[in-house]
Amino acid sequence: MAVDAQGRPPLRIGILSAEHVHAPTYISLLAAMPGAHLVGVWDEDRRRAATAAEPVGTRVFDDVDDLLERVDGVVIASANARHRRLVEIAAAAGVHVLCEKPLATTVVDARAILDACAHAGVHLMTAFPTRWNPAARALESAVRSGALGTPVFLEGANTGTMPDVHAPWFVDPTLSGGGAVTDHVVHLADLYRWILRSEVVEVYAVANRILQERFARVETGGLVSLRFASGVSATIDCSWSKPRSYPTWGGLSIQAIGTGGAFGIDAFRQHLGVYGTREAGISWPAWGPDADAGMLAEFLSAVREDREPAVTGTDGLRAVEIVDAAYRSITAGAPVTLG
């Protein structure tokens, strides 16, 4: 077996489920990382596992326990509602966990995930790769250094195409937990918590199902307003507002206002404009640094160094609590308190 740059044997990593659209990215990145040995892929749908494993030639496992016996850590990329069961199985096998966002579809499940990992003594990381996006890091630095002064307001948009084009479960509430609010609130909510070092105390949200031709069984449009313990207000447009004709999947942007001025980021602005044949249409291929690679490297480091990852299970739980409060606010038609 190969060794990494420090001469250590690579960590053995498995993939539990390739249901999520991000699984192929994780698989190709892990297959190429010197610190990782991608052991294989398990999925309850064997054909899906085979399809995901094929490009890098990794092994397909029929039995989840068979894979868990051979790895130090797993990346869980199932449909949202199946996270809890898979985390519990992995933790029981003593395997460290990087779990796709949102950590769970209910606060109860998110807490159970944290408890399972704590009880088993394994590390749990939530997949919030945007913390490794260079623009997001530049904003965090501008706040940390004091360049922005005291932050007073954060406005953000994390909008995209309706992800049913990747996998139908995204719009099945029993598997996804919800629509645009579930899918797109957590990234910005986590970035805001990270940037502000403060917790959300109040949530207001509105949502509708007008976008995407009213076909979805879940909300496709949503606007969320957060109030932090530090007094800062923040908003999130989480809508699936990009039509199929849009040149890319979507984007994430923040306008931060502080006593030192304003600081804007557009996290996926580093893209080409490619205007090909009529059939190929218009596309915006991204060329910026891959935030997923930074996130996976941190997971490997945390496992190797036996320390808490930079994004924890608690971070995942807090984001789930914010989503839960957003749905409660939508039902109530009024702000709800949190914490």
Partner: peptide, 14 residues
């Protein structure tokens, strides 16, 4: 109509 709007106004820029 059910539509929702996010309206931002700022004097916070340089």
């Amino acid at each position: 109509s059910g539509a929702i709007s996010h309206v931002s106004a700022s004097w916070g820029y340089a």
